[in-house]
Design a protein around this nucleic acid. Sequence first.
DNA 1: TGCTTATATAAGCAAATCATTATATGTTAA
DNA 2: TTAACATATAATGATTTGCTTATATAAGCA
Lengths: 114, 114
Amino acid sequence: MNVSTVEIEKAASILKLLGDKTRLTMVMLLNNHDCCVCEFVEIFKMSQPAISQHLRKLKDAGVVRETRRGQWIIYSLNQDSDFYSLVQSVLGHLPSQDYLLEELKEQGLRISCE
Amino acid sequence: MNVSTVEIEKAASILKLLGDKTRLTMVMLLNNHDCCVCEFVEIFKMSQPAISQHLRKLKDAGVVRETRRGQWIIYSLNQDSDFYSLVQSVLGHLPSQDYLLEELKEQGLRISCE
DNA sequence: TGCTTATATAAGCAAATCATTATATGTTAA
DNA sequence: TTAACATATAATGATTTGCTTATATAAGCA
């Protein structure tokens, strides 16, 4: 793992972003699978604007990026971010959250966005 | 480095704690040197209660511990914490903040607490 | 074109956060 | 035992956060 150094103030702002259970889980999921907003809405049982606002913060910080695919906007982890290696280090300590996507699949809700 | 897994909710709460510049710098300093409250007051140019409150949060989370030495209370990193390895991973991405202690030493303020 | 779906933005609000000042506690030393 | 020093706790207030509802924007499709 490449351990690049990050200014302490910027690091704090990234850690603050990751210091929210919803956002941390989002990033954890995005580390393995691209996802669209509607999937997160299902997973977190949260309003669509709430999800959009979390994603916007992550995007503003450069942690994730978005790509439009038809009417969907697909979010993915930004591997070019200055903070990518910091984020990876953190994620390495967390248990996989992929069961959340499995549950979606069982409900037939995962496919809708792919 | 031992990469132990941490429940995602607890991880988020630790990251939130580290997501504050003052606390992150404190932890960074404590990683190499034990410090007392009065030193942090000097370093951060912040009121003593503000420093105490930051340290209390870190202590409540088990990240740091305190030892009384005479009238001083010395804070140190809790190496037995469940989150120690997560914290270490994060700190590994930050530049040393030891210059802050060097400055204290030059002012003759570091010695007072040792 | 107009309806539906997916997402973003705006406005508002309750709760949490981070500082402050004032005060209490505990240790040392005269 | 009283004064000084180091630290903690309490009360308070401004700011930030994370949600909500309402509305705007944009793409797909009948």
